[in-house]
Simulated assay, not measured.
Amino acid sequence: MAKHYRVGQFVKVKVTGIQSYGAFVKTPDNREGLIHISEVMDDYVHDVGQFLTKGQIVKAKIISIEDDEKLNLTLKENEYFKNEERQKAKKSVLDLIKETEEYGFESLAQKMPGWIQEAKANMRNEQGR
């Protein structure tokens, strides 16, 4: 017997696939659905794979049900993803750079010899293949 779902209901779903436009999911009774990239969080999401992985189980809210019974879901009301969004707001692109390192003209000049050696070693390794 198929379970009846309704708009506004929260369901636990398992991520079955990741695409550039969203994540495919299934409910425990194998009903298929999609979490569109725009429904992961309110902020801009460049890569769904940064937030979801295949096999992950998440709690999502049903925002619509297609004629073929497929679910359209959102994570925007999931507390975990709300917290991720708040934390993201505190971060900037510069957070990707190690906080212990300083970057500027002087430190770049200091790092350049090491980078050149590393590039030469990589080139030797490539030629040896």
Rank of each mutant, 00 (worst) to 15 (best):
Q9F: 03
G128H: 11
M112K: 15
K120I: 12
Q110H: 10
H4I: 11
T27M: 07
E79T: 08
V58F: 05
L52K: 06
L75G: 05
E32I: 08
R6G: 01
M112T: 13
I57R: 12
E39Q: 15
E106F: 10
F10I: 09
G8A: 08
M123T: 09
N72A: 14
Q127W: 12
K70G: 01
R31F: 04
Q9R: 02
L71Y: 10
G22L: 03
N30V: 09
E118R: 14
N125G: 06
I18V: 12
A109N: 11
L75C: 04
M123F: 13
G22V: 00
K76Q: 11
E79M: 00
L73K: 11
T53E: 13
K3S: 03
N83G: 00
Y21T: 02
M1Q: 07
L96F: 14
L108D: 12
V48D: 02
L94C: 03
G128A: 15
K59E: 15
T16D: 10
K120E: 14
K76D: 01
G114L: 02
G17Q: 10
K12W: 04
E118N: 13
E102I: 04
G128W: 05
V45E: 04
E101Q: 11
P28Q: 07
I57G: 00
V40A: 06
V7N: 09
P113L: 06
M41N: 09
I37K: 13
F24G: 08
G33T: 03
K14Y: 01
Q110S: 10
L108M: 12
E66C: 05
I97F: 15
K91Q: 07
T16G: 06
S20W: 12
G55S: 08
V25C: 10
I63Q: 12
V11T: 04
S92Y: 02
G114F: 04
V13N: 10
V25L: 10
E79R: 11
W115G: 00
A119H: 06
S107H: 09
K82A: 02
M1S: 12
D29G: 05
E77Y: 12
K59L: 07
Y80A: 08
G33M: 04
N78C: 06
E69Y: 13
T74P: 08
E39P: 05
F51I: 07
D42V: 03
K91S: 00
L108R: 12
E102K: 15
Q117R: 15
D43L: 02
L52G: 07
L73F: 07
W115K: 12
L94D: 07
S20Q: 14
S92P: 00
K76S: 03
A121C: 00
F105A: 07
G8C: 04
F105V: 09
T74L: 02
K14N: 04
E106D: 13
L94G: 00
V15D: 06
L34R: 11
S64T: 10
L52S: 06
L73N: 05
R86W: 01
I63R: 13
R6H: 12
K26F: 09
I35G: 01
L96I: 02
L71T: 05
S92A: 01
R124D: 14
G49K: 06
I97M: 15
A60S: 09
T16Y: 04
I62Y: 10
S92G: 15
